[in-house]
Design a protein around this nucleic acid. Structure first.
Lengths: 208, 208
DNA sequence: CCTTGAAAATGTGACGCCACATTTATATAG
DNA sequence: CTATATAAATGTGGCGTCACATTTTCAAGG
């Protein structure tokens, strides 16, 4: 992101408009899915004419692409930042869990799109947006895997599985339980302890 | 499913045709997604005319619905069956992991659709197919949760988390790691030990 | 300074076009 | 002659375009 304050009034105005279009699009896409939203609808919701959308984005696919990738950046940056701070592996993981929970909480609409794209089976767009998002997600998982790896080297963690698989398991377990809670808060109340899932991984189920 | 052998030749023939149509549709849908497949394509692949499809299904949505729900049944039946046999909780869970792995292995095309529908964000179809599939999945998770619960009662498992959350975590961790392997077998080879994921849950990471 | 008006920049939405779901008229088989 | 399969015909809806409308800019004249 460029520094917004160095732009002309006109350019700032354009950015603002662009953001409004993307916000409207995010709402609609995350609610109804790529193929069940028309540009007409987006234009109407954003209070612009259809033609204006085309001044900002080449076509529907381009708009969607921009939306998803920008949000991905924000999401991954937020979480990456959270795991950089402490040295301690356990604390890093706790920070990761909390940061992820917070992003789910505060940005649910996008989360639905993100999961749709990063899971294997969305097919929203031909030109491999899926691929790109998934690739980024894999790269991100490497960061979590690195924490596990370091913990195993330090002998803070037992060496019971490939660090990457540990990362995959933890990350997807978080996704699933957060989604459950967000989908039906009444039926699946938020775990009292935000680290419940993490504790499963730490403590293990079987008596030693 | 009705017993096929009590039907007339004509009726058996119809069932066979129906199955062929659904098989073709499954291939296409799982590869390209609901909205990127036309009935023309399905008809061509199944070697029928378009009109014939309409003799069997009211419309495209109806066809897709039938496809997904029938496959869901098969999938859930197979796994439910696997966890009914042993009494031992650990063995039940091992059977669950193996059955699920086997279904992923042998029926990958459907798995992609299943995950797309059971995750929150697919939106292939307006009329809440998502909802129905997700609801079934939740119900299925109850069965896994019951195993954990029983294990905790027996004191075979430590009481570290709500059984339902344990089930959610294990199930999604399985999905994610199986998918990883299926998407890129060269980069993520199949874990030597099929129970790797399960062991993470059993043993725990931190030294006691 | 303020006014004004024309040109440049920007916004608009009706419409062309096409892909595809569905229907219907026709051909074929039994 | 009936039942069934077929594929051409029909209708719908959404993407993307473009000729026009509106707003902004800016300079010259009062």
């Amino acid at each position: 992101m460029m520094n917004e304050h160095k732009l002309s009034r006109r350019e700032r105005e354009k950015l603002r408009q662009r953001r409004e279009m993307l916000a409207a699009a995010l709402d609609l896409f995350s609610q109804k899915g790529y193929h069940n939203v028309s540009l007409c609808e987006i234009a109407e919701k954003a209070e612009f004419a259809i033609g204006t959308l085309y001044k900002f984005f080449q076509n529907k696919e381009d708009l969607y692409r921009a939306l998803v990738l920008e949000q991905c950046d924000r999401f991954e940056d937020a979480i990456s930042h959270a795991i950089e701070q402490p040295d301690d592996e356990v604390e890093k993981l706790r920070n990761y869990v909390r940061a992820k929970t917070e992003r789910f909480r505060s940005n649910l609409p996008f989360i639905r799109l993100y999961l749709a794209e990063s899971r294997g089976a969305s097919f929203n767009i031909k030109a491999g947006l899926n691929e790109e998002v998934r690739q980024r997600h894999y790269n991100f998982l490497e960061k979590i895997a690195a924490i596990f790896e370091s913990g195993i080297k330090n002998n803070r963690f037992k060496n019971i599985a490939d660090p990457y698989y540990l990362a995959v398991a933890l990350d997807s377990a978080m996704d699933a339980s957060l989604l459950l809670w967000l989908d039906a808060p009444e039926r699946h109340p938020y775990p009292e302890d935000p680290d419940t899932i993490l504790d499963i991984f730490f403590k293990g189920l079987i008596h030693p």
